[in-house]
Simulated scan of single mutants.
Amino acid sequence: MPKSLLSLFISFFIILQSSCSPKTSEDANEVYRLWTGEKPSKSIQVLKGKYWQSGHFTKEYIMFIELHAPKNWIQEFIVQNKLKPATEAIVLPTDAPPWFKPTSSYKVWEPSDFSQGSAYYVDSANSQVMFYEIQL
């Protein structure tokens, strides 16, 4: 095998292997960055988070996050993501972290189109949200 072809094969194998590694984090700000692709703005206080992403190129992930955000950010999030009030009781997933316990003061939102169980909990009085998002 020519040396340049061997180098190309090794490079391809290294890239392939590194792209297949899952990503996990429980660092709140890193979870926000992995979820959104950017750092939180100064107006958003990320309190807690848990994130898992498969090593597949299709970006399969499960994310739990708790944050304080301005009311206009929350409203914009609801509109941009086409969320609707949940019509049925939402059951928390069994793999939810111990801190993910939204109370009855949270209004529950869900995707208006296809959903795999994502739920968005909003406490408007405190500008606090807890999101569970799943994309498999």
Rank of each mutant, 00 (worst) to 15 (best):
K39C: 06
I44L: 14
S41K: 02
V122H: 09
T36R: 02
E60C: 15
A125I: 06
L16H: 12
P70L: 12
S18H: 06
D95T: 08
I65H: 04
Y120T: 06
M63F: 00
A119R: 00
Y51R: 00
L34Y: 05
A119H: 11
W73D: 15
D113E: 11
L6Y: 14
L47P: 02
D27S: 15
K50C: 03
P22R: 03
Y32D: 14
I65Q: 14
P93Y: 04
I15Y: 08
F13H: 00
Q128H: 12
I44F: 12
D113Y: 08
P93W: 00
C20T: 13
P93S: 03
T36H: 01
E110Y: 06
P22Y: 01
K82S: 08
W73A: 08
L6H: 13
D27F: 13
S118Q: 03
F100Y: 13
F57C: 00
P98C: 02
L92P: 03
E30F: 02
S11G: 12
S112G: 15
W99M: 03
S112C: 01
H56Y: 08
G117H: 06
T103I: 05
P22G: 04
S25Q: 15
Q17I: 12
S54D: 07
P97C: 02
W109M: 05
K50P: 03
E60V: 09
A69D: 09
M130R: 04
V46L: 11
Y51Q: 01
F13Q: 10
N81V: 01
Y51V: 00
C20D: 13
S105Q: 11
S21P: 05
S25N: 11
E30N: 12
I14C: 07
Y120G: 02
Y61T: 06
D113R: 15
L92C: 05
P85R: 06
Q45S: 11
S43M: 05
S18C: 14
S11R: 04
I74S: 00
